[in-house]
Simulated assay, not measured.
Amino acid sequence: MVAIAANGPFPRSGSRIAGLGAYRPVRVVSNEVAADAAGVDAQWIEQRVGIRERRHAAGGESVVAMGVEAGNKALADAGVSAGEVDVLILATCSMPSPMPNGAASVAAKLGCRATAAFDVNAACSGFSHALAVADALVRAGSARNVLVVASEKMSDWVSAQDRNTGPIFADGAAAALVTPSDRPRIFPVAWGSDGHQAALITIRPDTGHMEMAGRKVYRWTTSALMPAIQTACERAGITPQELKAFVPHQANLRIIDALTEAIGVPGLIAATDVTFSGNTCAASVPLGLHALRQNGQVHSGDPVLLFGFGAGLTYAAQVVLTP
């Protein structure tokens, strides 16, 4: 007989991020190495996207393996055991195969018991989508502890010789444990999609490599997505001026700077993890939040705006209080 995880009735007036974890591969790829492969100048990479170095996974560092590392750290940070996890959501778009899903393997390797486990593929906004689902599950009373893991091995899906993707995308993982709260600390998401422009970021079936129309994606991001940011703040009951930090998807530094400027809050801290991590797709938002907390730039209870956007085209923004 299959075991069923214990559930409800759980406290559900709100939810919170109770713990964060991050995993960054050891292998550092410099701009010089990336530039040589792509046939460009190292300075051109930094000037164009603001990246100085990125991390690439070693052969044994799979999406699942990196997710396990990040998940373990998030559980330790929250003081919760793997056996207490009711649901595990894996945000990824870089699994080598659609079956089996990655989430069940991550759950098994963590030591979770009878845990519901499923993948969410919203590309670079995947973590924000998964976090919204986790918040809803907790508030609905369907789960007490939901582990959201974002893990990507984008180096498998880009050609190092493609100047538009090779020097930009990278590997890594991060995780957040979502638990009940006496009041909301994860606020309602503002999300959507524009599938009419889905062809801007695709995987070519003949090569298996990503293709991206970078300039068009830049224009879409910096011109069409501000309403989502404004709506996320409204749904949290705050103004942008009350934000402590802004953690957008770490696509490139130019987009981050443009979005931060458009928010128009002097002194607003913006995550710039992309500079030393590259674009880690779904993992980039939680890696950025983890870095801000580790560096002491945000503290427990600080309101932070998370904002993912990417292939699909998909986007999702939500305000959270720093764990």
Rank of each mutant, 00 (worst) to 15 (best):
213 A>M: 05
170 A>F: 05
230 Q>W: 08
233 C>I: 00
195 G>E: 09
247 V>K: 00
209 H>F: 14
194 D>S: 11
173 A>M: 07
172 G>K: 05
203 I>F: 04
170 A>N: 12
219 R>Q: 13
252 N>Y: 04
210 M>G: 10
217 V>S: 04
163 R>A: 11
160 A>C: 01
228 A>K: 00
202 T>I: 08
180 P>D: 12
220 W>V: 01
182 D>M: 09
173 A>H: 12
169 F>N: 01
224 A>F: 10
213 A>K: 06
171 D>Q: 09
225 L>I: 06
177 L>C: 15
251 A>P: 07
176 A>K: 02
167 P>A: 04
196 H>C: 05
224 A>Q: 15
251 A>T: 08
202 T>L: 02
173 A>W: 13
173 A>F: 09
239 T>D: 15
161 Q>W: 05
215 R>H: 15
219 R>M: 01
235 R>W: 03
171 D>G: 12
205 P>H: 09
219 R>F: 00
212 M>D: 03
250 Q>A: 02
220 W>G: 04
222 T>L: 00
249 H>L: 01
207 T>D: 01
195 G>D: 02
252 N>I: 04
174 A>M: 06
208 G>E: 09
226 M>T: 07
209 H>P: 01
187 F>C: 11
178 V>H: 13
174 A>Q: 08
191 W>T: 09
212 M>K: 00
198 A>D: 04
214 G>N: 02
238 I>C: 07
170 A>S: 15
217 V>F: 04
249 H>C: 00
245 A>S: 03
208 G>F: 09
227 P>M: 13
193 S>F: 14
202 T>Q: 12
241 Q>D: 12
232 A>D: 11
188 P>T: 11
192 G>T: 13
250 Q>D: 10
187 F>E: 07
196 H>S: 07
222 T>E: 06
163 R>Q: 14
190 A>V: 10
170 A>P: 08
177 L>M: 10
183 R>L: 07
212 M>A: 06
217 V>K: 02
231 T>Y: 00
183 R>A: 14
210 M>K: 04
212 M>R: 00
226 M>L: 13
181 S>N: 13
254 R>G: 01
216 K>S: 06
243 L>T: 01
208 G>I: 09
239 T>S: 12
184 P>H: 08
252 N>F: 05
212 M>G: 08
185 R>E: 15
166 G>D: 03
194 D>Y: 03
221 T>A: 15
224 A>L: 09
182 D>C: 08
185 R>S: 12
237 G>W: 06
166 G>Y: 03
186 I>R: 10
225 L>W: 09
169 F>L: 06
205 P>N: 06
176 A>N: 03
176 A>P: 02
218 Y>A: 02
235 R>M: 03
239 T>C: 02
254 R>L: 00
231 T>W: 03
236 A>P: 04
232 A>E: 03
200 L>C: 04
185 R>K: 14
194 D>P: 11
199 A>M: 04
186 I>P: 11
197 Q>L: 12
180 P>F: 08
182 D>W: 05
174 A>S: 14
174 A>K: 06
196 H>R: 15
241 Q>H: 11
204 R>S: 13
182 D>A: 14
161 Q>A: 05
